[in-house]
Design a protein around this nucleic acid. Structure first.
Lengths: 113, 113
DNA sequence: GCGGGATACTTAGACTGTCAAGGTATTAAA
DNA sequence: TTTAATACCTTGACAGTCTAAGTATCCCGC
C-alpha cells in the first residue's frame, strides 16, 4: 500500500540482481537479505517473503548461490546463502544490463537534458 | 534473443510510462510508438506487438489515452492514440516513481560512489 | 501483374515472477 | 502467558510480458 501499486511490478527481473548484490557483501540468510535491502534503500525497495524465498530457491537451482544451515546473530536456526563463482558472473552481467536498461528508460522519460 | 532473456522482464511496470511519454510528444499510432521507442533508445528497448497493443487497450480502458482512426503518413489505416488529462497525470506519477525506483536500485547495485 | 517486404492491427495461449495470505517454530520481552 | 520479532516455507491468484499466428494494405522491383 505504502509504495504505489505499480512499484512492485518494477521489481520484475531486478530482484535477482538485488539479492545477488546483497550476498556479494558476504553470506546472509533470507530474512537478513530482505532487511538489508529495505534499510539500504530506506524502504524504497520492499521484498515480500513470498517473492524472496522462491527467488532464493530459483537461484540456488541455477547454481548462482549456495545454502548452508547455521545460526543467526540472535541464536536462531537460519539458512545462510553465499554467492558462487557463477553467481558473481551473473551479478556482473545483470548489473551491466540494468545500467543499460535504466539508461535507456531515462533517455525516454527524462529527455529534458 | 539479441537482448538477454531477462531484459524483457524489466519492462514489467515500465512499459506504460514509456508509451505515455511517447504520446506526450503528440498523437501517434501504435506501430509508430514502437518505432519511436526503438529509435530513441537505439534498440535498447524493444517492444513486441503482443505487448504493445494490449498495453494500449489497457490504458485506453483506464482513460489514460484516447483512440481515433486516421491515416498514417504512408496512407494506411491506423489508430491514433493521444494522451488524456488523466494520462498526463499518470505519466507524471509514473515518471516520479520510476526515478525513485531506479535511484534505489542504483544505490544497491552501484554503491561504489 | 505478381511476389515480397514493410506497414499496421489483432488475438490466443503460455509462461514467469511477483504478490497476498496463510502457516510453523523459536526467542525475548511485557 | 501473551505478545512481538525473528526466520522460514508454501499455496494460489494475478498481471503483464512474450511467442506466434493471422488479417489487410500498400509499394517496389522485375
Amino acid at each position: 500500500m505504502a509504495a504505489t501499486e505499480s512499484t512492485k511490478d518494477r521489481l520484475h527481473g531486478t530482484l535477482d540482481a538485488l539479492v545477488l548484490k546483497t550476498l556479494s557483501w558476504g553470506p546472509r540468510h533470507g530474512y537478513a537479505v530482505a532487511r538489508w535491502l529495505e534499510d539500504t534503500t530506506q524502504n524504497a525497495i520492499q521484498i515480500e517473503e513470498g517473492s524472496l524465498y522462491p527467488a532464493l530457491y530459483r537461484m540456488e537451482r541455477k547454481g548462482w548461490i549456495e545454502a548452508e544451515w547455521g545460526t543467526s546473530e540472535l541464536g536462531r536456526k537460519a539458512k545462510f546463502y553465499k554467492l558462487t563463482t557463477r553467481g558473481k558472473r551473473q551479478l556482473k552481467l545483470e548489473t551491466t544490463e540494468w545500467a543499460e536498461f535504466a539508461q535507456a528508460v531515462s533517455v525516454v522519460l527524462v529527455p529534458t537534458a
